[in-house]
Structures are given as C-alpha cells and as structure tokens.
Design a binder for these strands. Structure first.
Lengths: 201, 201
DNA sequence: TTATGATTTTATCAGTTGATAGGTTTCTGT
DNA sequence: ACAGAAACCTATCAACTGATAAAATCATAA
C-alpha cells in the first residue's frame, strides 16, 4: 500500500546492489557514477538524490556487505560451535565463496579513498563482522584446550583470526572459485591452520 | 664519459623509481602521469618520450619490482636452504618487509588494468620471482621428510607456496611493519604453517 | 663550428569525471 | 482535486585525465 516507501526502497536498494557488484569487481576509482546509473536504468544526477556523493554510496555498499557477512558468520558459528575444526572449515568455506572478489582492493579503497570518519565507522563494522566472530572461535578453542597455549605459541584469538583472514582474503588470481574447489581449498587451509605442514613426530 | 647514456638512464631510472613508489602506494588509477612527472621534476609530456604510455611504465615498474624480489629470495634460499624452518622464516620476513604496501591492489591492477599480452608476461615474471623459489623450499622439504606427504595431506609444493604467499601478501591494514613486529609476525606465520595451532597429542 | 639526434618544453586536445542548478513528473495524504 | 513532497530528468560546469604536435634546448660527433 505504501507505494512511496516501496519505490524509495526499490531504487535505493537497486543502486546499492549494482554499486556493490561494480565496486567490488572493479574498485572504487574504476567505477563511475554514470556507469552505476546506466545499469540501474536511471540518469547519473538521480544518484545524487539518493546519496550525498560517491563516497557515501561506497560506504553504504560496504556496510551492507559487512552486515550480510556478520549475519552469516554468526549463524555458522552458532551451528557448528561445538566442533572447532568443522566450524573453522565452514567459516573458511563461506568466506571463500561469498567474499568480494578482491578484498585486497577493498581494503585499499577503504584506506585510501575514504575520510577519517568513514574509515573509523567501517572499521567498527569490520571488527563486528569478521574479527570478533572468528576470534571467538579461537577463544573457545583455547579455553577447551583445542588450541595451543597462546602464551607459549603466540596463538592469541585476534592474531589467529587475522592469520586465517589473511589466508582467505588474499588471492593472487581474482578467479571466482567453484564450489568443490573452494571446499578443497577450505579443507586444506583448515588442516594446515590446525595441524601444520610438518609431519607428526 | 658517455654522458648521454648516463643521462638517459638517470631520467629513465628516476621515473621508474618514482612511479613504483606511487603506483604501489596508491594504485594504478589513483596515480596520474602529471603527478609522477611533477615529483621527477620534469613535465608530463616528457614521460611519453621515455615510455610509450602509462601502461608501459606500469609494466616496467612491475618488472623491476619482481626482479628485485627474485634476486633476494634466491639469495636467502641459497643461504638457508639446509634448514627449512629458518629458510621459511627468512623468506617470510623478507617479503613482509620489502613487499609493496598493498599487494592485493597490485594484483587487482595487473588483472584489470593491463592487456592480455602484458598480463601473460607479468605472470611469467611472477612465477619466476615468487612461486618457483618458494615452491622449491617445500619441494625439498617433502623429499627430505620435513613436510607431510602431499598425497595424504594435499601439501603439494605449489599450493603450499600460495598458501604462504596468501598469508603474507594480504594485510587488512596497509601499515608499514616495523622490524621487530615483522619478525614476530614472520615467526608466528612460520610456526603455524609448520606445526599448526592445535596442541600436540 | 656545425649538423644530427636525443631530450625536454609549451600549447593543446578530446574525453571522462564528480557534482550542481533548475525544471518536470510522479506519488501521497488530505 | 489539490498541495506538497519525493523522484527523476535535462543541461551544464569545472577539474582532471592520457595523449599528441610542434617548437626549443642540449649534448655529441664530425
């Protein structure tokens, strides 16, 4: 019934969706406001009715991206929280399949293209979406003795989380992973992370 | 005596150096030919006397960057080749300290901004500079029983090399690492890579 | 000295970019 | 039906981009 509201949401949401696809694929600089508008089927100045400027649109894209990941990771951790190996595998697999094609590019854009205030806000969202959920897995693992003693090995939850995230988020080829290959890769990552490449002595 | 030759080299080399710093820090798109020229102390059209176009300059920057890394890694491997743990640590530490501040951005630029023929050439150089040297460490480790059986664990040399490279090359913060922090991080990476986060049973 | 070629400069172009002003259409609540 | 707001459009701007043409400077070899 509230056609106005739906209409706003439709345009707004479509712009964010299109922008996310382009920004994450090509990077902030390589995507023009005209290209976004064209794909949305609107004219370029209309974008500026929905968003203050290009940066604001990018920030909104990042927020929606991070929020989606936060929801998904919490779900996975709730489901497999009792089995740390399976939990890490599922998290790794999910990120591999659903992350932006080039997270390195995304981090670079956040660092170089946004202002201080935006950066801080995105940082907050990033921590809640990626860092805390994954660190919580390792924290539980340490408590239950499935992860080495951090004091001896340096395996504190947050550094461990970043180690896993670095492992996942970088990819020297930007290829989109196929399902079974991503599963294989996630399994390899998880195995190495937990048990290492050296044979048991 | 050959003043002409020196002069060419001076300009040429200075342009490449300045361009490398800017390209690696800001990314291909964010660096204008005018900015490079300004820092070099020359006018922008002069760049086009030394390089066919912006892309050609970027390719040259990448080549010099990769060549430097190739030389360094071969040196390290020759020196510590008999001790796989120390060798991996030294390689990890060296890359952490000397890599471009954002390798993710670099990969993205290679993938999206270069043509097919340039991409293939850079790929060749990349393999010789990073992939083969690091894979050779794991290959030796497998032969000598310091790395698990690849058939059982999936720890083939090249996937293992990429695992380590992914670990190193990504950094969600683009901060320049300080020496002792990089050493600590390299040690942590090497330890996890070889022995895993799970305690020995 | 002088001719030649390498190097660099000035002037300029055409295309793209993010952004704004001002008018027009569309929708909504009364 | 109508007032007001929201959504969208046309036209346009100033800045910046990579690139080229043509002239000027410079070093070098004869």
């Amino acid at each position: 019934m509230n056609n106005q509201f739906e209409h706003i949401n439709n345009s707004h949401q479509k712009i964010v969706e299109v922008a996310r696809e382009l920004f994450m694929e090509m990077g902030y600089r390589a995507v023009s406001t005209r290209k976004i508008a064209e794909i949305c089927g609107i004219t370029q100045p209309t974008l500026y009715h929905h968003f203050k400027n290009k940066k604001a649109l990018y920030v909104e894209v990042l927020k929606s991206e991070l929020l989606k990941m936060q929801t998904a990771l919490r779900e996975i951790i709730k489901k497999h929280g009792n089995d740390i190996e399976e939990c890490l595998f599922q998290v790794t697999y999910h990120i591999l399949m659903n992350k932006p094609s080039s997270m390195g590019q995304m981090f670079h854009d956040i660092e170089k293209e946004l202002g201080e205030e935006d950066k801080k806000e995105i940082d907050k969202w990033w921590i809640e979406s990626y860092q805390l959920p994954i660190a919580s897995i390792f924290e539980k693992g340490i408590k239950e003795g499935q992860i080495r003693n951090p004091i001896e090995f340096g395996s504190y939850p947050i550094p461990s989380a970043y180690l896993l995230l670095n492992l996942i988020s970088s990819n020297y080829r930007d290829v989109q992973l196929q399902e079974h290959i991503a599963k294989e890769q996630a399994r390899f990552y998880t195995n190495v992370l937990l048990y290492g490449l050296a044979p048991l002595r």
